[in-house]
Amino acid sequence: MANPILVLAEQLRGGLADITFEMLGAGRALAGAAGAPLYAVLLGREAAPLAPKLGRADKVFVADHPQLDLAPAGAIAAALKSVMDQVGAGLVLVGCTNVSSGIGSLLAAKTGLPLVNFCRGAKAEGGALVFTSQLFGGKILSDVKLADGRGIACIYPGAFPADAGKSEATPPVEKVDVPVEPPAVVFKKYLEPEAGDVDITKQSILVGVGRGIQTRDNVQLAEDLALALGGAVCASRPVIDQGWLPLSRQVGKSGMSVRPRVYLALGISGAPEHWEGMQNSRCIIAVNTDPKAPIFDGSHYGAVCDVLELLPVLTDKIKARKG
């Protein structure tokens, strides 16, 4: 039997993140092909009660030390390394998310194993594993081979179906002891998302603006369109980081996940971190001056056009159509 595959269950505030199930699904397929067992790892006293939800794993290893609640990446990597050693794991799957950021790399540093980041695809080829990594803002893919099937893979959210990682079965649970050192990084408190003037997650029409909007003043052009449509303006990260719109309007990995009836992506390139937050919109319409922008690949409608020229005309025509 091949070395076990480990999945680090990602949890936040007492719940399991979707990425956990996405990884369990991907891990199950790899484990099946390699003839390896699939184990989940749950860390922290608060997390321990979540074990029954991980039925897709052959076994769940739980380290219920209170210092692993909201632990920093270093403590989690140390605990994972210890579990790896105890079960003789060959491959570890970790979420490529903000919550888990750095854990994979710290584990790679501790174990000397290779790490493949931003994984969107995974397949077994004999004893080897091939991961597809998405690079350069989604413009390039690289297939990377782990010849002996050993390594660490950081799995990109939304790349694998979560349903494949869910099961009604109750998995066996085993407690493990892991080393816990006095932490140099200590959780203090959550900073809740500021309640914005509008809740973009509840809007059915969103006008999303990206760096292509170019200046703070131009954001008004999008506001005019949103007003004409009866929707709201949201934005990609660079627009928020510039302070042109409040954080409550950010869509994507660090911001909000939205699923409006229509999402207009104006001057947004379609980087995976933005895509993560709006991919479930029912209709996506992209406008970009670059005909090769990745945003066109997943959108329903697209136009190669300067948004600054388009916006005033479009707003006028919508007003005229609505009468």
Binding site: L12, L70, P72, T97, N98, V99, A184, V185, V186, F187, K188, K189, Y190, L191, E192, P193, E194, L247, S248, Q250, K253, S254, G255, M256, S257
Partner: peptide, 16 residues
């Protein structure tokens, strides 16, 4: 330090 999570949620950590 302030670290970002998702959904606009952030958290404060104390670092030596």
């Amino acid at each position: 330090v302030i670290k970002e999570f998702a959904g606009g949620l952030r958290a404060e950590f104390d670092v030596t």
